[in-house]
């Protein structure tokens, strides 16, 4: 049997596309290389390894006395306070987020520029540094966890309302149409179709935000807005590595537990 095979033809390539890919790759490498300039990696303190070792050792030999002393300044009460800050802050932000979400959701019921404007406002809120917000609230209500609650409550709106509005945009139109067809008004549509359909997404996103807020709450203390961050920065400054160890351990355990719990609730919700 005789077959004459054809010669392999070189693959036809889209020159423009290949050029673009190379250009992007080169630009990315150049950016990274540029970032190395003025970065003094040689200036690391000679004691670095020693301190890292000490902190690491502290985690495995924590200051157990600090866990509970009963004077309200111990690990357990500080962690509890941190959780309360996150809880209340998330709750406040969830409530503020709902009207913001409806404002910035792109639906066929309103003009495009209204939603666009809402999205810009949310982007600005998101980008406003949380720590600065905390400092501003400290000026308003004094140092302490209340400032932390308010800072979290307002800052989280930027992200939470964005997630909410995405949930609104992804909603199925069907139920809304059914209410329209029975003669319902816009308000009826919202109460009978949109909100009930939206509720699981709202709860799920709020729980997710609680996880994030808990991490934030544990650093707000760095600027004096309550929670576990304050004793941590003090321990770091006074080089009490065993205390740093127990606080880190406490934060890790708390975050893992809360993550697990909120994951469990979210799974049951679906």
């Amino acid at each position: 049997m005789e077959t004459s095979y054809q010669k392999l033809v070189p693959q036809t390539t889209n020159k423009l596309k290949v050029c673009w890919h190379w250009l992007i790759a080169i630009a990315a490498i150049a950016l990274i290389a540029w970032s190395f300039t003025d970065m003094d990696f040689g200036g690391i303190k000679a004691s670095a390894g020693q301190i890292a070792g000490a902190i690491f050792k502290g985690i495995f030999h924590p200051d157990w006395h600090y866990v509970y002393t009963g004077d309200g300044e111990d690990l357990v009460s500080e962690l509890w306070e941190t959780m309360c800050i996150a809880f209340l802050g998330t709750f406040i932000s969830a409530i503020i987020s709902v009207p913001f979400a409806f404002w910035s959701a792109h639906t066929k019921y309103k003009r495009w520029w209204s939603a666009r404007l809402g999205k810009i406002v949310l982007a600005v809120i998101r980008s406003f540094p949380e720590i600065v917000l905390a400092l501003m609230f400290i000026k308003a209500v004094g140092p302490g966890s209340a400032a932390g609650v308010l800072a979290l409550g307002f800052h989280s709106v930027g992200m939470l309302a964005k997630l909410f509005s995405e949930a609104i945009e992804n909603l199925e139109e069907g139920a809304n149409e059914a209410v329209t067809a029975t003669g319902g008004s816009k308000w009826h549509i919202m109460m009978f179709a949109t909100l009930p359909n939206l509720l699981p997404a709202l709860i799920s996103n709020t729980l997710y935000r609680f996880d994030v807020s808990l991490r934030s709450a544990s650093i707000l203390g760095l600027v004096g807005a309550g929670g576990i961050g304050y004793p941590l920065i003090i321990a770091l400054q006074y080089r009490q590595w065993d205390r740093v160890g127990i606080i880190l351990l406490g934060i890790i355990v708390m975050v893992v537990l809360v993550d697990w719990l909120s994951g469990w609730i979210r799974a049951r919700l679906v």
Partner: peptide, 10 residues
């Protein structure tokens, strides 16, 4: 689990 600023402080 460790937040960004905490890593910064450490």
């Amino acid at each position: 689990t460790i937040p960004d600023l905490l890593l910064g402080a450490i």
